[in-house]
């Protein structure tokens, strides 16, 4: 369980995350939604120790994450940022191999190679695993990074807009894989999404942020409705049922 307690972050004089408290339940997919600049990435960065909070704390199974050793934390929580820039030439396989770094520090064991193969397979990258990253399309690159995080094999997986650059087919594929990781392997996934329909269809819980504040936090069924979404996005979004899924038809909303 990850408990975020009264966390605040200022950039200059402006609070971009303000007194947010959320509990991430294990064995579930939790989606973070909210408009651009709401503070979703900042919040995720603080949870994963990429950024220090100004006040408040983050507890991982009751332990303050600041007290955990970097190496130990890396075996339990993985984060993928919204954008990734690498200034050396790497192949997909080399990148994914880095996911095993917390365990083997660059000296890959047979078990590591198995995990790498598995992660490549998950993301459908086996055929192109020896291609260099700078030879890939945006979506292929994104899948390579997700594959690295999967190879890291952590209990918690935090993903900041992983569907960036992906086509519909691969978006669906990745959401299904995340679902599988949660349902079959008992992992916990936190994911920032802009397409609320993916949040609606695939996540167990939704956390909504707006202007740095928490505005909604609850099971998906309680958040995906016109009133709640109005609070988050200031839009009138009709919600329709389709094959047991709630679909938000936001294309023509005011």
């Amino acid at each position: 369980m990850i408990e975020i307690k009264g966390i605040t972050k200022f950039f200059g004089k402006k609070p971009v995350v303000e007194d947010v408290s959320v509990t991430i339940e294990t064995g579930k997919i939790t989606s973070f939604i909210g408009p651009n600049g709401a503070g979703k990435s900042t919040l995720l960065s603080m949870v994963s120790r990429l950024l220090d909070s100004d006040t408040g704390e983050v507890l991982l199974d009751k332990t303050d994450v600041k007290k955990l050793k970097s190496k130990d934390f890396a075996k339990r929580v993985a984060i993928l940022r919204q954008s990734n820039f690498i200034n050396v030439r790497l192949t997909i396989r080399e990148l994914v191999s880095f996911g095993r770094y917390p365990y083997s520090h660059g000296r890959l064991t047979p078990e590591d190679n198995e995990k790498i193969d598995e992660a490549l397979e998950y993301m459908n990258l086996v055929d192109i695993q020896h291609k260099f990253l700078d030879e890939l399309s945006g979506g292929q690159k994104q899948r390579a990074f997700i594959s690295m995080v999967i190879a890291q094999d952590t209990e918690y997986i935090l993903l900041d807009e992983p569907l960036n650059n992906l086509d519909m087919k691969h978006s669906v594929q990745i959401m299904k894989i995340l679902r599988k990781l949660v349902d079959d392997l008992g992992k916990t996934v936190v994911i920032v999404l802009h397409d609320i329909n993916f949040a609606s269809v695939y996540s167990d819980r939704i956390v909504a942020l707006k202007n740095g504040r928490l505005v909604k936090d609850g099971p998906t069924s309680e958040i995906i409705n016109t009133e709640s979404l109005r609070e988050v996005y200031d839009m009138n979004i009709p919600v329709q049922e389709q094959d047991g899924c709630k679909i938000c038809v936001y294309f023509q909303s005011q």
Partner: peptide, 15 residues
Amino acid sequence: DVMNLGRDNAINLGV
């Protein structure tokens, strides 16, 4: 070697 992936990825991988 891990630092080549950038600060955030390096921290994520336990550096």
